[in-house]
Design a binder for these strands. Structure first.
Length: 239
DNA sequence: AGCACA
């Protein structure tokens, strides 16, 4: 009964680039890209992240991995991941990214997109020019974490990493996880003190260590831990 | 909803 034709309608074949939508449109492009980087770098080297704030392209991003396997892992493991209060929708990009084509040798500059000609109009406050690539860009490292906290914007994500703290903030914990179960993971690192979960707020936990270094070690080791289907997200707790 | 390459 099922047609044998694969990849003919909705399916897109695996490639280096993932297309993400259903992103929270209130998040500024710059911050969005930093947060995406923070969340996806666990799957491998990210060559570039593109996002735009134009009508047709907001709420979406293209994230280019160095390896296809990274993209595949990202599509599978991060599907529906709560990001700025919205579940991410992830697919492979429909077409090859320029940066990949250039590496391929298959890059051919596109003739002209619909409306590429737009000049003579200069707005001082409206420069969308900050969608440059990251990852390979040394300047990016400097900008990382330099974003000041935006008041009013509640986020589920370490977009601007909180300063080191001996207490970790764990998000995306499956609701049926017990403190004991969590403790099993976190107590294997030196300096572990305790796990605290908030009854009123399922999905999150605080884990305390003796000092910041110990907390950092545990965080880095457990960052990619999945419990059930869910990918944990660990940051420093706010002071 | 919306697949680009400032």
């Amino acid at each position: 009964m099922e047609p044998e034709v694969a990849n003919q309608g909705n399916e897109i074949s695996p490639n280096n680039t993932i297309y993400i939508n259903n992103l929270n449109e209130k998040v500024k492009i710059d911050q969005l890209k930093q947060s995406l980087h923070a969340v996806f770098k666990q799957f491998g080297t990210i060559l570039e992240i593109l996002a735009f704030k134009t009508l047709k392209h907001k709420g979406q991003a293209w994230l280019v991995f160095k390896d296809v396997a990274s993209a595949t892992a990202a599509v599978e493991k991060m599907q529906g991941f709560p990001f700025y209060d919205k579940p991410m929708r992830i697919q492979y990009a429909k077409t090859k990214s320029d940066i990949i084509a250039k590496a391929d040798g298959t890059f051919v500059p596109r003739e002209r997109r619909k409306r590429h000609e737009e000049k003579g109009k200069k707005r001082k406050d409206q420069h969308d020019a900050n969608q440059a690539g990251m990852g390979l860009n040394p300047a990016y490292a400097g900008a990382y974490g330099a974003t000041p906290p935006v008041s009013g914007a509640k986020s589920v994500i370490p977009e601007a990493p909180a300063p080191p703290n001996n207490i970790l903030f764990v998000q995306n914990v499956p609701h049926d996880t017990t403190p004991m179960a969590l403790q099993m993971f976190f107590s294997q690192f030196p300096g572990f003190k305790e796990v605290r979960m908030v009854e009123a707020k399922p999905g999150i936990a605080f884990v305390e260590y003796g000092d910041e270094m110990q907390a950092t070690v545990a965080m880095q080791s457990l960052q990619s831990l999945k419990i059930g289907q869910q990918q944990l997200l660990i940051t420093y707790a706010k002071k």
